[in-house]
Design a protein around this nucleic acid. Structure first.
Lengths: 187, 187
DNA sequence: CCTTTACTAGAATATTTGTTCTAGTATATG
DNA sequence: CATATACTAGAACAAATATTCTAGTAAAGG
């Protein structure tokens, strides 16, 4: 019902991510130039600049969490290790979205001006991940801090050595696995 | 010779860092409001917004490198481990500068508009650190990638779990040490 | 086919933001 | 004290940016 978009949402989000990898300045003008979508269209579709940024972040974080939570909740003794490796794998399979997640502070995407319903969604997404990590900690017996470090902090720190400019090398996985086990064995 | 500043440079840099920890938007207006220094003063002292941002970053990175390089080049079998721990220690001793280093992409501080001489200085500072890490890799026999991960990536990833809002807990050091050794033993 | 609906287009507007400018102030040095 | 020097102050200006508005276009459903 109604006219169809000439440029898909994910193409718009991708352009926003690409800008972040560059000079990092995201103005509506840059989005217009890079996508070919007019200002009027952007406002019709997303409502505001803040909403567009929040949607870009949500799109990226949902894609990542699908990979991460699937691994973490798959069971088995190496579920944690596979979840830790979800980060470098995601960077290789979805570079553009990985840039959004790895190169940005939340403050770049969310502000008091972000629409309420998006703030709510963002909050929910974050809570879901935090809850999954808590569950994993409880089941595995590892400390919560060790899990946060081994599952998130170390893998993220590692890929940030390469992103946004260079691809994440396969060789990184071995280090990330080792760091994961070092964390859970320490705590 | 001449009148003295009522607000010191490091106080101005500190305010810029504090903003980054908040909503992240650094406009001259926010700097004026937070420091009480007028726009005219800021331009007289720093020349441009870009210069102020670059100086803020340089101030922070120099302070960190003093700690980091001292540890790394002190010799001994645990020089690497102490250099890795320089990151959490720095975060505890100099929270404001740590925020500048840990919470920001370079693109937020440098642009084509950054004055030439500051771009040069920034380049030199980065080269000095990279060279020190290469030397350490050569002396220790560890791979360069392992050193970059163990000395920089893992410690930085770890402290980012807490910054900018919360203090970096002492307990983190044990995990960072373990991650450092896991890296150099893997590579 | 006609209507409804969602999308497109870009000029116009209002706001924010960086920069410049002129006048004035305080301090070190001779 | 006199003067050069660096800093302070904030209004005025120019540029960039977000947002609104009106008119028009394409596709789906009755």
């Amino acid at each position: 019902m109604g006219r169809l978009s000439t440029v898909r949402d994910d193409q718009v989000f991708s352009v926003v991510g690409a800008r972040l990898a560059g000079d990092g300045a995201i103005t509506l003008q840059t989005v217009v130039d890079d996508t070919g979508v007019s200002v009027g269209s952007l406002y019709h579709r997303y409502g505001s600049r803040e909403a567009l940024l929040a949607l870009t972040w949500l799109d990226a974080v949902r894609a990542f969490q699908t990979c991460f939570l699937t691994a973490l909740e798959s069971g088995g003794d190496d579920a944690g290790e596979r979840a830790a490796l979800a980060t470098p794998r995601f960077c290789r399979s979805d570079h553009q979205r990985a840039i959004v997640l790895s190169c940005c502070r939340p403050a770049e995407f969310f502000s008091p001006a972000t629409p309420q319903h998006l703030q709510k969604e963002i909050s929910n997404v974050n809570k879901a991940a935090a809850a999954a990590i808590r569950r994993y900690a409880k089941c595995s017996g590892y400390s919560l801090e060790a899990c946060r470090l081994g599952l998130i902090a170390f893998p993220l720190g590692a890929v940030r050595l390469y992103l946004p400019a260079r691809p994440v090398p396969q060789a990184l996985d071995e280090y990330i696995s080792a760091a994961f086990w070092s964390a859970v064995e320490t705590g």
